[in-house]
Design a protein around this nucleic acid. Structure first.
Length: 225
DNA sequence: GACCAGGCACATC
DNA sequence: GATGTGCATGGT
């Protein structure tokens, strides 16, 4: 069991401070509305965010960037609109699965989820086809404002590089590492994840280097991913 | 032309 | 229950 007194917890808090000092507030998630957050969370699966933006613009131009439209349109129609996001047939099915769930359980409104306990809601989201742990946590944190830590590929890389987790640590283990180290604060979880993406994009992907990385003073390997 | 990007479901062992 | 594979675009 990890506790807040665990040296690793202290390191995770120091890493947050270092990232925040270096980059400042990130103003995440990059979406205009909670609905867009959910749609973006599904579209960004294994996909560069720029391609997601194209797909979201396409949906908006077709007046399909809302639950009613997605509920009424066919999977094939949605697929054509989101083509730039890649794996578009799969993602069209997943958007459809989510909107079907939203209508079946919450009258087609995210706001109707307001009074559902976090753990219950998380399980419900995970039961939707196409919503795995990361997508569920993105929805909970960024669309619904719930304090749940989002673990993505950058988060995992950072932890492995800095010897804070083994490369094969599963999602729940990594999530618990952060949640044990930090108070259950929505704004803090939001900012930390966003900062990890920023440092990851700059320093922790293929052909990037550790030069100038704000985490340089923390023990790490300069591995290439 | 190869490789990668803010995962997930499904098949198979 | 661990591991492998398909999905498919646009950028580098």
């Amino acid at each position: 069991m990890t506790t807040r007194a665990d040296p690793r917890s202290q390191t995770l808090r120091r890493i947050y401070d270092a990232l925040y000092s270096a980059y400042g507030p990130q103003h995440w998630w990059p979406a205009r509305t909670p609905n867009e957050v959910v749609i973006g969370a599904i579209l960004t699966q294994n996909t560069n965010w720029k391609n997601v933006e194209r797909a979201i613009r396409s949906l908006r131009a077709a007046r399909a960037l809302n639950w009613r439209a997605l509920h009424e349109r066919s999977v094939d129609e949605i697929a054509e609109l989101i083509r730039p996001a890649g794996t578009f047939r799969v993602k069209a099915r997943r958007l459809k699965a989510f909107v079907d769930f939203l209508y079946a359980r919450y009258e087609g409104r995210l706001t109707a989820m307001r009074d559902v306990p976090l753990d219950v809601l998380r399980e419900e989201l995970l039961s939707v086809s196409g919503v795995g742990p990361e997508t569920a946590d993105c929805i909970l944190l960024y669309a619904l404002g719930r304090p749940t830590f989002v673990v993505d590929a950058y988060t995992r890389r950072m932890l492995v590089r800095h010897h804070l987790a083994p490369h094969n640590a599963d999602y729940a283990t990594i999530k618990n590492l952060f949640e044990a180290a930090l108070p259950a604060d929505r704004a803090l979880y939001n900012e930390y994840h966003a900062l990890l993406v920023e440092v990851g994009k700059r320093h922790c992907r293929m052909r990037s280097s550790c030069d100038g990385c704000p985490l340089g003073r923390f023990p790490h390997d300069e591995a290439v991913f």
